[in-house]
Design a protein around this nucleic acid. Structure first.
Length: 986
RNA sequence: GCCGGGAUGGCGGAAUCGGUAGACGCACACGACUCAAAAUCGUGCGGAGUAAUCCAUGAGAGUUCAAUUCUCUCUCCCGGCACCA
């Protein structure tokens, strides 16, 4: 530190400068997006998830994504983009409503108060949001359009009413959202909740499942986000196969269709299973001879709550549907039907063909009900070594598992001969498998008192290479199981090459499981000890004329034989769109008895009705001119005792005139879920004050799609998927110009409290940004949040490290003010250009932590200079400005810069200035670094080697050795390999 | 169970088209300044060893002149899904 203390300079006082610059930016409207105009510019639309303004105010976790995107937005402005970086409030929702229930204060009032707090807090951080476009989902001028879009869904027949279970708390007498009833426990009273059926509005997102999955190929989302969405959508390709049903009199009474992904196993289907909700139960009730039993089981199964029903550890239950038989279309066999709750009604056709030999759940069920298990797939495994080693000789082999007093016989070969195995052997010409097994047992171990107890139906096809015989084999392996009655033995008769190469051991099942790794031997463990069914592919057997075909080819042929249809299905379910709450968008529909009646009597022609009206007879949408349908003022926000929305108790609001016929009608009293307003908010930002449309075509085609959307991983499967769905729907109606709403999606990690636990009010460990800003300044908070660790990783707050970042800013402050108008040194100039490159790249990759470290390296180097170059400092400040905009502006201003840094171009690096004249090279001897040497980077490898050999360190290590081989990586490594030490490995 | 991601000093973390492991910061220790303390500045800081040197990126194997980085097996942790046929 040369000069920093020589002169008195003013102190860094963020409190004095931050407000000033925020006002300045506001006054100059620096952050307002221009929008479509005469001179079109490149636009950039970064987006953060708009916050839910909770009563607790901001905690330090909130700003992390804002700061990250702010850095990107500010960099883009400097790069000349017209940037739309908006903010708003996702203000409908439960916490506010619950607060209102408790205190009686209207949610509107609470929301106002909370948004005011949030706004003040966010503004104190100097995030470059365009506040002129602020939106609020609870503003009627906004939710008018949420309702309008909902009516479009209705009009297109994608909204429908359906009976769906809700979480019901019997003691609170209230319907709960899923997030209030986690694990079936009521959040309020901690009692058990139950499922109750209720008519709810649904949005048919499943219609878009295919496109929501497929179009993920067209967007730039983080791979883990794509994976999670795909997983959630759960696309699965399979087949529909029909089974004809016969009654007790052998009359054909109909068909049942099943969905399967394994048509190749059809010959192994030994029974059918229907979900308790399956409509065939009702259809065949008179044919089912034990219907009382079947019916009551089904009823019980339906009543069980999901938690209980999907508990996989629970034993399988079910009841046979006596009197009915299904015909396996492949075998012609008559097989029984069961109703069992392990089959889900919502997935596939709600009915399955059970193949116990190749499905774990079916196997478990078959064991319990003593149903036949028929092996139809023999595993096949090709060892990689077998692949390029010539002709494979065919042979038959056996694997014998021998049990004695709970332990299993293991032949423990030397590692290169296979390691731990069971007993194996080759079947000789004309020999029976059992005989082979006992013979091999006797020859290799000497044991003679064994009895074969089981021969597996399953065979294993194994292609491998035997190093001992230097030959590739294609083996068909049979599995046998024997019990050893006594340890009586004779002298083994070993072949020469076997002798001394293995030991005979008795091992516990755990050891066998862990240490036996050869595929067919592993399978032998599963068959006899682990009792695991084979679910993989291979070759068909017990499948008539398809025997020997691969599962893939056989599956296709079997499909053709039985007339199966290929079918793609999804795990994704339709979206329950009703909430029995007050604080949400009212659903703008009314129910008109009279209109329903007229439709029933065909007094109205279908073509005069929208698809929604046809699908939901009697439900009439409000006219567009009557939107928004405003929430009525009420005093009581509690849901009714029977779980209806509080709105249902307001008679005046509920009873209306039908917009269709003018008669008496009743309003829908449910409101929309939280996700509604956030499903399209990014569109509104483009034209937030528009009264005629949700946004003008012009604004939409200029600003959308969102270029970069950053948000939490927790919103991957709901919010992001929902909004993609809405967007695609709007696209189909030609209301938005692009297929996808977001080009790029990234995510940030949580900020945890010190100690690594989640911040929460109840734990009292919440860090309020106000405190940090007040004490250390917004720039310190910003810089620390970017420096603390990788942006996408959860990380704990650390008060001491915050102070370290503040020290860094103080140093920047000092060195900037001490800078002089001198020419920078070459080294420093190079470092500057390295920093420009590093920071520019790191911002794009959201590696803000390493960008910060590059800043620190540059400032450390500047401090060491005799005279600090102002030229460099001014560029440094420009680079810093997206991260710490206030201090950067202030310092640049003090150094005479008249223009705001946001208006100056983003610095570019000059690759010529990056080139280093000298390079430090690590000199290795036989792969170990023994010295480093700094040489002009232009030297030839020969020259470098010559100079390296002169180094004393290297001389020492090369003494008495000759250089055999040299590996040279320019600018990095010179590796000298000497003859004596590098011996051939084998 | 399945699908993702991860494991590096006392701590947060750098370095992954294989090429000097530990950048940058925190904490800590010592020194300077000070009557003293704080602040600031300087030096040191993975482990063992006086040193030469050796050992070290969750564990074990492999490929390579060279592995935190690639391959395989395993352990643990985090996130998501879960009787999805």
């Amino acid at each position: 530190m040369s000069s920093l203390n020589r002169k008195k300079i003013t102190e860094y006082q963020p409190q004095k400068i931050e407000k000033k610059w925020q006002k300045e930016w506001e006054k100059k409207k620096l952050f307002q997006a221009r929008g479509p105009g005469k001179r079109a510019r490149k636009k950039f639309y970064p987006l953060i998830e708009f916050p839910y303004p909770s009563g607790d105010g901001l905690h330090v976790g909130h700003p992390r994504p804002y700061i990250g995107m702010d850095i990107i937005a500010r960099k883009r402005r400097m790069e000349g983009f017209d940037v739309l970086f908006p903010i708003g409030w996702d203000a409908f929702g439960l916490p506010t409503e619950n607060y209102a229930v408790k205190t009686g204060v209207h949610p509107k009032v609470v929301t106002k108060k909370n948004t005011d707090t949030f706004r003040r807090q966010i503004q104190s951080l100097g995030i470059s949001f365009d506040w002129s476009r602020e939106i609020n989902t609870t503003d009627p001028a906004y939710y008018k359009w949420t309702q309008w879009i909902f009516l479009k869904f209705f009009e297109q027949g994608l909204a429908y009413k359906s009976k769906m279970p809700i979480n019901w708390c019997p003691s609170c007498k209230i319907g709960l959202a899923n997030e209030e009833a986690i694990g079936g426990i009521c959040e309020r009273c901690e009692g058990f909740t139950e499922k109750r059926e209720k008519e709810q509005w649904m949005l048919e997102i499943t219609k878009y499942a295919d496109r929501l999955d497929r179009d993920l190929d067209t967007v730039d989302y983080l791979p883990k986000i794509i994976a999670q969405q795909r997983n959630w959508i759960g696309r699965s390709e399979g087949a529909l196969i029909s089974f004809t049903i016969e009654n007790a009199l052998k009359q054909n009474v109909g068909e049942i269709e099943v969905f399967t992904t394994r048509p190749d196993t059809l010959f192994g289907a030994t029974y059918l299973v229907l979900a308790p909700e399956h409509k065939a139960l009702e259809k065949y009730r008179h044919e089912i001879t034990n219907f009382p039993e079947v019916g009551s089981y089904a009823l019980l199964g339906q009543k069980k709550d999901e938690r209980e029903r999907t508990d996989t550890s629970r034993e399988k239950t079910g009841v046979e549907m006596k009197g009915l038989k299904a015909t396996n279309p492949a075998t012609g066999e008559h097989i029984p039907l069961f109703v069992a709750d392990y089959v889900l009604f919502q997935y596939g056709t709600g009915s399955i063909m059970a193949v116990p030999a190749h499905d774990e759940r079916d196997f478990e069920f078959a064991k319990k009900f003593n149903l036949p298990v028929r092996n139809v797939v023999n595993p096949y495994f090709e060892h990689p070594d077998a692949r390029r080693k010539g002709q494979r000789e065919k042979k038959k082999k056996i694997i014998l598992v021998v049990e004695y007093q709970g332990k299993y016989l293991s032949i423990h070969w030397k590692p290169e001969l296979g390691g731990r195995l069971f007993l194996g052997g080759t079947v000789e010409e004309g020999e029976e498998n059992k005989k082979t097994a006992l013979r091999e047992l006797k020859e290799e171990t000497g044991y003679i008192d064994a009895e074969i107890e089981e021969v597996a139906e399953e065979k294993f096809f194994y292609d491998y290479y035997a190093y001992s015989k230097e030959k590739a084999f294609s083996a068909e392996i049979s599995f046998l199981y024997a019990h050893l009655k006594s340890l009586k033995k004779i002298e083994p008769t070993l072949e020469e090459k076997e002798r001394g190469n293995f030991t005979v051991e008795w091992v516990l099942p755990e050891v066998a499981k862990k240490e036996i790794l050869n595929p067919p031997h592993q399978r032998a463990y599963e068959i006899f000890i682990g009792k695991g069914v084979y679910v993989g592919g291979g070759f068909l057997s017990n499948s008539g004329r398809f025997d020997g075909l691969s599962t893939e080819e056989g599956g296709k042929k079997i499909m053709a034989l039985v007339g199966g249809k290929t079918k793609t299905i999804y795990k994704l379910r339709d979206w329950v769109f009703s909430r029995q709450r007050y604080w949400g968008e009212p659903i703008p529909l009314v129910f008109c008895e009279h209109c329903a009646e007229r439709m029933k009597n065909k007094e109205v022609r279908n073509k005069d009705l929208t698809k929604g009206e046809q699908r939901n007879p009697g439900w009439i949408p409000l006219r567009e001119k009557d939107l928004p349908l405003k929430l009525p003022e009420v005093k009581n926000f509690k849901p009714t005792n029977d779980g209806q929305s509080p709105l249902s108790s307001i008679k005046k609001w509920r009873e209306v005139k039908c917009p269709q016929c003018g008669g008496k009608a009743i309003r829908e009293t449910d409101t929309m879920p939280n996700w509604a307003g956030s499903s399209w908010y990014f569109l509104r930002y483009t034209d937030p004050k528009n009264k005629k449309e949700f946004a003008s075509k012009k604004a939409l085609s200029y600003f959308t799609p969102v270029d970069w959307y950053n948000g939490g991983m927790e919103h991957t499967t709901l919010h992001v998927l929902y909004s993609r769905f809405w967007h695609k729907f709007l696209y189909d109606l030609k209301l938005v110009p692009t297929l996808e709403p977001y080009l790029k999606r990234t995510s940030h990690g949580l900020i945890l409290a010190e100690g690594g636990v989640k911040m929460s009010k109840s734990k009292g460990n919440v860090v309020n940004p106000d405190a940090i800003v007040g004490r250390l300044g917004a720039d310190t908070l910003r810089a620390y949040e970017m420096f603390m660790g990788p942006f996408d990783q959860a990380i704990a707050w650390n008060e001491e490290s915050v102070a370290g970042v503040r020290r860094f800013l103080e140093r920047v402050w000092k060195l900037s003010l001490l800078s002089k108008k001198t020419k920078p040194s070459k080294d420093l100039e190079r470092l500057l250009h390295q920093t420009i490159k590093k920071v520019s790249e790191d911002i794009e990759d959201m590696k803000f932590n390493t960008a910060m470290s590059a800043f620190m390296i540059l400032s450390n180097a500047l401090e060491k200079e005799e005279v600090i170059s102002q030229e460099i400092v001014l560029i440094f400040l420009r680079l810093l400005s997206p991260f710490v905009p206030h201090i950067a502006e202030e310092l640049a201003h003090r150094l005479g810069e008249k223009t705001s840094l946001q208006k100056l171009p983003w610095p570019k690096f000059d690759s010529k200035k990056l080139v280093q004249k000298d390079a430090t090279i690590a000199v290795q001897v036989n792969g170990k670094v023994r010295a480093t040497i700094t040489l002009p980077s232009s030297l030839s490898p020969k020259e470098v080697q010559k100079r390296a050999l002169l180094l004393p360190q290297i001389k020492k290590w090369m003494e008495g050795k000759t250089v055999k081989k040299v590996i040279f990586v320019p600018g990095k490594v010179l590796n000298l390999l000497s003859f004596e030490e590098v011996l051939p490995k084998r």
